[in-house]
Amino acid sequence: MVELLLATTEHPKVIFLDAVGTLFGVRGGVGQIYSRFAREAGVSVAADAIDRAFRQSFQSAPRMAFPGVDRSDIPASEYQWWKAIAAQTFSLAGAIEQFDDFAQFFRPLYDYFELADAWFVYDDVPLALQNWQSMGIELGVISNFDSRLYPVLEALQLSHFFDSITISTEVGAAKPDPVIFQAGLSKHYCTAAQAWHIGDSYKEDRQGAVAAGIQGIWLERDRAFATPPSQIESNTYSVQSLAGLLKPQSA
């Protein structure tokens, strides 16, 4: 892998960033949150069992994109997508049969992830966004998230940094599909060569961006869970933090 230069006089017209795992993460982890909500519903299941089951359920799920679905119906499709993952998660964890009414249980759990309490902003994010904004670089989000991303960014006081937000459910295509990157580019009237995309997924963010002609930068926040080296191209640009990446000359 190639460590990207931390400071440079050259900069892109726009920097796109992924959302979850790049800008912010789940506070306490999915397992803790799911198990806490389950406990309040009278269901006992260990957080680590939920974590394992959730990873398996999430990875095996179809990508969160609904081509051909009317925009007004997208929130309902998003809800059903997540409900299916949650149900499979509790099933794999051996707890689904303990629920009297899983549909009733799931609604407040889903709504919780629209609140600031469910998330934390990574320490390096605010300063990096401020630096890039001060340099006149346009900022955008490209994410395989759902429409809750809008209130989440607002609640986390990040929304004012971004000139565009592009999500898979609205585009009808999810990363690494080049279509979602092209949709993001169209909002900034720039070519792929004028853009960067930074994200924590090697396949979705790094390889997806490169396939669309964008400079893809892989953010390895936790190398303990990194993609195996044998699967990584030798010319991959990677960083472990946004701190120092493309700083203003006076900084």
Rank of each mutant, 00 (worst) to 15 (best):
G172H: 11
S35W: 00
S159A: 15
G94A: 00
P151I: 04
P228G: 05
K203P: 03
H160C: 12
D70C: 09
S250I: 07
S60G: 14
F145M: 14
W119L: 00
R27Y: 04
R36M: 01
S44T: 02
A251G: 03
A61M: 14
Q130K: 13
A243I: 11
H160N: 12
R107N: 04
P176H: 05
G172Q: 12
A19H: 05
W81V: 00
A226Y: 04
F54P: 02
A65R: 03
S186A: 15
P178M: 05
G28S: 03
P75N: 04
E40T: 08
D101P: 08
M64A: 12
R71G: 09
K247R: 07
S230T: 11
V141H: 05
V14S: 03
F106K: 05
A155F: 13
A86E: 02
Y112W: 04
G21A: 08
G172P: 13
S238E: 13
G31E: 07
V210I: 11
A84G: 09
D111F: 00
V43A: 02
F145H: 14
F102K: 06
T9V: 07
R223P: 04
Q32P: 00
P108F: 03
S35I: 00
L158G: 15
G216E: 08
Q182S: 06
A212Y: 05
G31Q: 08
E138T: 07
Q88N: 14
A19C: 11
N131G: 04
P178C: 03
G94Y: 11
T89H: 01
L6P: 12
D70K: 14
D200E: 15
A212I: 07
I50D: 11
